[in-house]
Nucleic acid binder design. Structure first.
Lengths: 218, 218
DNA sequence: AAGTGGTCTAGACCACCAG
DNA sequence: TGGTGGTCTAGACCACTTT
């Protein structure tokens, strides 16, 4: 391990020294350092050196939040209702996006309530090969997200946020009228290169706002 | 210009050919190609070649990012128009949220265009004591966010995302109809404990999606 | 003056894909 | 078999900061 000798602020050996230590060319040593710099864990200062940085506190702006804990943190009651559970052969685009080799996909639709008021409709597709026992979980006790991360620790995610007008299904289940726009969050979660799950989350904008804080520790 | 000979799908000259054309080493030519690949405008296929890609249709992020660079990364033109500039005494809630002790607040409203299509309306309040020269900047050359971070490095931020129906002002300036919802991003940026600026960003949802990627380095 | 990162060179070998 | 991208080498020069 290169960096174990020092924490934040530690100056790592120069590129020339690294290349000698590892019997590699300076270009190669530099490239290795480049990768760590790109992750934000090292910072170069020209003519001075390369230093260990505080890991970026905001790994992302929208952390994957646990809606159950989030609601309890507000002192409210969380309840969820499973609207449908099914196993399907991936044919549509959403299902295919997470099944490169498997033949089955689980789909589940859940409504989340805060004090008996619906605040999220969750439509989730799960890779059946990677999470074979998914549908058997008791989703009144554990959220889909919680279970998935316990089975496959999250390593990567991609999130897209849109504003949409509600479909009839959304109007009915979220108890809103046709003039209330919704936030649509599409989230793919990956673990070690495999796409575990694709979730589409709908929030009525009159009851729910996405929030996030960044705190850079410099 | 390297790529003017072909559109999407065009195979650019090999790295060896490029290095000859430009009288540079292959490493240098490769590095130049790397930058374009990183922008998503070129795609390498090992053993086959490097090809012109469709500019990523949607790519923005929730990180505090530079809309100008984001648009040019897509290979598009960015233009901004200042709708209004003013100095005001903080009386309304937005202004007061960032003025604990100062007596003046700058307000600026800007429309951002991508290829002459409006994609963001930016309404920004700036702490006049902390950034006294804000209004004098040439916002056709530097974005408000760029200037602010150059003066006061960002340390903290808070973000709230909502879906809203467009107001008349939004409809007019973003060139959308009353049925097109918008994403509203409210962002407070802080530097060393002081609130520098509060921005309200409106995006037409039919033209713009917020995206974010998480890559945990474990 | 010495050391640093930033950049570039002119080679080289490899695995892979094409015809 | 020849061309491609992927990687690496062992140098080199530069601008800049530090002492």
């Amino acid at each position: 391990m290169i960096l174990n000798n020092g924490g934040v602020g530690y100056k790592i050996p120069s590129e020339t020294e690294l290349s000698v230590s590892f019997s590699a060319s300076r270009m190669t040593a530099r490239k290795a350092v480049d990768e760590i710099v790109n992750k934000g864990l090292l910072k170069r200062i020209p003519s001075v050196g390369t230093f260990v940085e505080e890991p970026p506190a905001q790994s992302s702006l929208l952390e994957i939040k646990n809606i159950s804990k989030e609601i309890s943190a507000r002192g409210h009651r969380h309840k969820m209702t499973v609207l449908s559970k099914m196993t399907l052969i991936p044919n549509d685009s959403v299902a295919q996006s997470l099944s490169s080799f498997n033949s089955k996909v689980f789909k589940i639709v859940i409504i989340h309530f805060e004090n008996d008021i619906p605040i999220q409709l969750e439509e989730r597709y799960v890779n059946a090969d990677l999470v074979p026992n998914f549908l058997e979980q008791d989703f009144s006790k554990i959220t889909a997200n919680e279970y998935l991360s316990s089975v496959h620790p999250l390593t990567d995610a991609e999130i897209v946020i849109e504003a949409i007008m509600p479909t009839n299904i959304l109007k009915h289940n979220l108890e809103i009228d046709e003039k209330t726009p919704c936030i649509k969050v599409s989230r793919s979660t990956m673990s070690n290169g495999y796409t575990i799950s694709h979730a589409i989350l709908y929030y009525p904008s009159n009851r729910y706002k996405l929030t996030s804080s960044i705190h850079l520790t410099r």
